[in-house]
Design a binder for these strands. Structure first.
Lengths: 195, 195
DNA sequence: TCCTTTCTTGACCAATCGGTCTATAATTAG
DNA sequence: CTAATTATAGACCGATTGGTCAAGAAAGGA
């Protein structure tokens, strides 16, 4: 009954990774179909067949990022392998490590928030989900790091951390030095994570 | 000797304001010459004659923002009319006021940092200048607000404030509520500005 | 009244944009 | 083998992109 037809010749996940990297690096408008064709080696028809139009590709790339990167960060924030304060420090240090690795892409979630979220409702919803995941994991880690703190206060501190993280990611794309970012992390540790 | 030629018929500052608003709202790639023509009512030739190509228009718009908005914020941070702690609070509350006014443009300096700074060196230099102005003014205000604090510590706190500000501006474009932003400001006041 | 200079307008340009569609290839069910 | 189904490749599409240019208009100097 169901006739399977010709099988797909490329690895969809591989292709999606390449698409993600393009949007991550260059943003929505800064990435053309021609760039995607070049990077994936696929023809237009195959791309549209597998991922839909450009907007759909972008959204799939962003959701892929959410699964691959954000969920990993959330797991690290929740993982009890090291003390919660160190987990929070590790999270805030992600932007520093990226700069040290000369990775200029920043955080796709942050880039999407700045770039596309205000223009497209689906993107805005996706970024809100990503933020919410981080917010919740940060609040849990803060509560664990500062026993006795009220839930509301932990959430407030988590909100600060999320904003600091986003700010560092954006600032680093504009040339923040490792030293500036380290100062920021240091001061957050000494003030926000102390009171 | 010097022949003056036909005088310009439009107000350059008016036009630059309109151009600035477009790039501010929609970013570099998201703004087309056609949008600029529509908004200013000017023909292509007049625009190129007065402002150069698109890249040059963007840069002029960003520098105009720096003069009009950033310099105003810096002056408010340095102005001794109210206590330094309140000046810092007012600065951090700018993103909240913008949302309350349903102004979805965010901060052009922050948008440019996310959008264009990593792709164009001139834009990166312009954003760095803007950041440096804010950094210095914040550090001065912090030092005044927390007498006895070391210069280095004041600069560290200023760096945190700059990152929090940038983060709030970006997050608000992705749907941060007034409540979330108020939590952030409140917590910064209670922790960063206390120790 | 020219002449020179600058500004304005919009036609025009090649290149690129995102997107569609057709012809062909590859697969399996029957 | 045939029929049905899906994937691939890329020709093709109209629209739009940033940018140029030529013709005419508006000013002051000579």
């Amino acid at each position: 009954m169901l006739n399977p037809g010709r099988p797909r010749e490329f690895d969809e996940t591989d292709a999606l990774n390449k698409i993600m990297n393009l949007f991550w690096q260059n943003g929505y408008e800064g990435t053309g179909l021609s760039d995607i064709i070049k990077a994936t080696g696929l023809a237009k028809g195959s791309l549209y067949g597998a991922f839909g139009n450009k907007q759909s590709m972008y959204l799939k790339a962003l959701m892929h990022y959410e699964q691959q990167v954000i969920d990993t960060a959330v797991a690290a924030l929740r993982g009890p392998s090291i003390p919660p304060l160190e987990r929070l420090d590790a999270f805030l240090s992600l932007p520093i490590a990226a700069i040290a690795d000369e990775d200029s892409r920043g955080c796709f979630l942050c880039n999407a928030s700045a770039d596309r979220a205000s223009l497209d409702e689906e993107t805005k919803a996706a970024t809100k989900r990503g933020h919410e995941k981080l917010r919740a994991a940060l609040a849990t880690a803060v509560a664990a790091a500062l026993p006795g703190i009220s839930t509301q206060r932990a959430e407030r501190k988590a909100e600060v951390l999320l904003n600091v993280y986003t700010g560092m990611r954006i600032m680093s794309r504009a040339g923040s030095s490792v030293g500036m970012l380290e100062s920021t992390v240091q001061e957050v540790q000494d003030s926000v994570m102390m009171v």
